[in-house]
Design a protein around this nucleic acid. Structure first.
Lengths: 209, 209
DNA sequence: CAGAGGTTAGTCAAACTTGACTAGTTGCTC
DNA sequence: GAGCAACTAGTCAAGTTTGACTAACCTCTG
C-alpha cells in the first residue's frame, strides 16, 4: 500500500472537515507531491474509495450561489479514525523499503500519545536489529570481498541502510524522551508545515546524465 | 517510473533471448518480487509494452509439440539496449527516494565499464552533497530543536538518509577503484545471484502491531 | 469592459500494478 | 495406474496512479 491513504486521512483529520482541493493544497504545501504519490488524481480517488469503504463520510455541499464545480466535503468516521491510527502505527514500526510511508508517519507522529510513539519506535529499532542479525548470519559483510560477487553490494547497501535507519530512530526516541514536541493529549499543538526551503527534497532533481 | 523496466530489460539482456516465465523466475531468484514490483502481471505487461515501443523484439515461438500456452520470446533491440543503459545510468546517479531503483542498478552495475561506473557514482555523491548543502542552508539541524516543530524531524530523517547514502556510495567507489568485481569489457563474468539467506530482505516483514 | 492570466475544483483516459485464476504437463506415491 | 502435488506459462479483472484536461470564476490592465 502507498502512502496516499495515510496522507489523505491525516489531512482530512486535521481539518475536521475538508474537500478535495483543500487536501490537495495541504499536501502540496507539505511538498508531498514531490516525495509521495499525493497527486490530484490519486487524492480524489482515495477520497472516493475511502468514502465508499466507510472510512470517510461524504457531504455533498449544496451547489453554492457562486456556481463552480460541485464540491464534496469529507470527514472521518470512527472507522476512518481507527484506520488512520492503524496506518500510522504500522508505518512507524514497519521496516520495509517505503520512505514515503515513514516520512508521512513522522509528519503525523504527534497525533500519538508520547509513550506509544516511543514504544513503536523501539519496536522499529528492534525489528531493524533483528533483521540485520538474521541477514548477516548468512552473509558476512567482510571488508575484503573484492573478488567476490558484486551482488554482495546489494546486501551491503541494505545493511548500511538498516543501520542508518536504526541510528536515526534512536535519535528520535531520545528526543521524544527528553520531552520534545507537543504530542497527543499534551495541550494545544501548532499547525505544522515544512520549513522554508524544504519544498524540493530529494525527489525529481534534474539528472546529471 | 518504477524499477520494472530496468529489471526486465536487464534480465532479458543477460539471456540474449528469453520468454516471460524465464524472466519471472530470474527475478524471483533475485528476490526482486520482495523489494520491487517485479510480479507476474507487471513483468508480462512490461514485456508487451516495451515490445510495442520497439525496445524488445518479440518472437512468437511456434506452438511446440508438447502443447501448453503459446510462448513468446523476447530479445533487446538496439533501442532497448540504449534504453537499458539509460535507465541504469539514471538509477545510479539519481538521488531520489527509490530504493528499488538503486538496488536494481547495483545488480546490473557490472554491465558498465569500470571508469563510467565510478564516474556515475561520483556524480551521485556530488548530487547528495549539493542537496544537503542547499537544504541545510535554510534549515539548521540543531541538536536542541526540542521545542521546535516536529516537522523538522522529516528534514532530519532526509539529511541523515542522504549522508548515509553518500557514505555507502563512497565505499562502493573505493572498492571499484581497488579493482573489485569483473566489469563490462574485463573478461568473463559469473552469473550473479543473491547470496543464500537474502531472500527476505526488509520488505514484507510481519508487523509487530 | 475585453481579454489575459491566475485560482479553484475536479474529471478523465491511458497506463500500470496486483494477485488470483486458468490450463496443460510432469513427477511422485500408494 | 489413479490421484495429487508441483511446475510451466501466461491471462484477466479490479484497483491504482498519472498528468493533462475542463470549466467556472476572479483580478488586473489598458
Amino acid at each position: 500500500m502507498s502512502a496516499i491513504r495515510l496522507l489523505v486521512l491525516g489531512a482530512v483529520r486535521q481539518h475536521g472537515r475538508a474537500h478535495g482541493y483543500q487536501i490537495r493544497n495541504d499536501l502540496e504545501f507539505w511538498g508531498a507531491h514531490e516525495w509521495s504519490n499525493a497527486k490530484p488524481g490519486s487524492i480524489y480517488h482515495a477520497l472516493k474509495q475511502m468514502a465508499k469503504q466507510g472510512l470517510l463520510r461524504a457531504h455533498d455541499v449544496e451547489p453554492s450561489t457562486v456556481g463552480g464545480p460541485p464540491r464534496t466535503e469529507y470527514e472521518l468516521t470512527d472507522a476512518g479514525d481507527t484506520a488512520f491510527h492503524g496506518l500510522l502505527r504500522d508505518a512507524l514500526t514497519a521496516i520495509d523499503q517505503k520512505p514515503d510511508m515513514l516520512t508521512s508517519a513522522v509528519g503525523f507522529i504527534v497525533e500519538l500519545p508520547r509513550p506509544e510513539a516511543i514504544e513503536l519506535l523501539r519496536r522499529r529499532v528492534a525489528a531493524l536489529e533483528e533483521w540485520r542479525h538474521e541477514v548477516t548470519r548468512y552473509w558476512m559483510p567482510s571488508e575484503d570481498a573484492e573478488e567476490g560477487d558484486h551482488i554482495g553490494e546489494i546486501m551491503r547497501l541494505w545493511v548500511h541502510t538498516a543501520d542508518c535507519g536504526a541510528e536515526w530512530t534512536r535519535g528520535l526516541i531520545e528526543r521524544l524522551e527528553r520531552g520534545a514536541y507537543v504530542m497527543e493529549g499534551e495541550g494545544e499543538r501548532p499547525l505544522s508545515v515544512l520549513p522554508i526551503g524544504a519544498k524540493n527534497p530529494f525527489a525529481d532533481r534534474p539528472r546529471q546524465g
